[in-house]
Each structure stands twice: as C-alpha cells, then as structure tokens.
Design a protein around this nucleic acid. Structure first.
Length: 97
DNA sequence: CCCTTGACGATAG
DNA sequence: GCTATCGCCAAGG
C-alpha cells in the first residue's frame, strides 16, 4: 500500500547520516507529492518517542529554522560535530544530498 | 464548507 | 544581506 506523506517524510529523515544535515525542500523533493510546508508540519507534530533525527533538518539557506527547539537543535548538532559558522549557517560540506 | 495558520521556498525590490 | 509577497497544502476552528 501507499505510505502516507508523513511516513515518507519520516522515512527520509531517518536516513540522514549522523553529522550531516538536509533541508526541508530536499526532503520534500525526495518524497512524492510532499511540499516543504508539509515537512515543517510533520516536524512540528512529531509523535512522542519517535527517535527521529529531527535536528538534522535545516532551512534552504542552511540556517536553523525559527522554532522553539532551535537552541536544543544547535546543541545536538554540535554534539555530532556540526558547528554553525559565524553567520549562523551550517557548512556546505555537511549537506546530505 | 470557508478561513486561518504555519520548524518553508523562490523571487522581486 | 534584508523585508515583502506569493505559492504551496494539510489541519483545525
């Protein structure tokens, strides 16, 4: 059966390697019929105990999205060796295709 | 059913 | 670089 758009998003997200990040738009492009806004929505309403690497998702400009967990996201990324540069952006080499 | 709301993206100024 | 708009479309009121 056809996975729901949310399941597709989770599937792609779970495949992001540690120490790398990807964008809302790229996740949307990798899934079918999914828009960046839908990815944002899915992230905002993550089920408890999901175990997904939500913090590896950044905006198209490689900045952290404006949301309540941004501070925690920055810490989690740092713990994996992903440090934001002086302009608050993730280095290009860290992008996951 | 209509309207509003977004952890967004692309484009224009 | 920035802000302003518009396109997008599921979810909730």
């Amino acid at each position: 059966m056809k996975p729901t758009w949310r399941e597709q998003v989770f599937s792609v997200m779970a495949a992001i390697p540690a120490g790398r990040v990807t964008t809302y738009g790229r996740i949307a492009a990798m899934a079918d019929g999914v828009t960046p806004r839908m990815v944002a929505r899915a992230l905002r309403e993550l089920p408890a105990g999901h175990g997904l690497p939500w913090y590896r998702v950044v905006t198209a400009s490689r900045k952290l999205a404006d949301h309540p967990g941004a501070a925690e996201q920055r810490e989690r990324l740092a713990a994996e060796g992903v440090v934001l540069d002086g302009r608050g952006r993730v280095p290009v080499e860290r992008l996951w295709p």
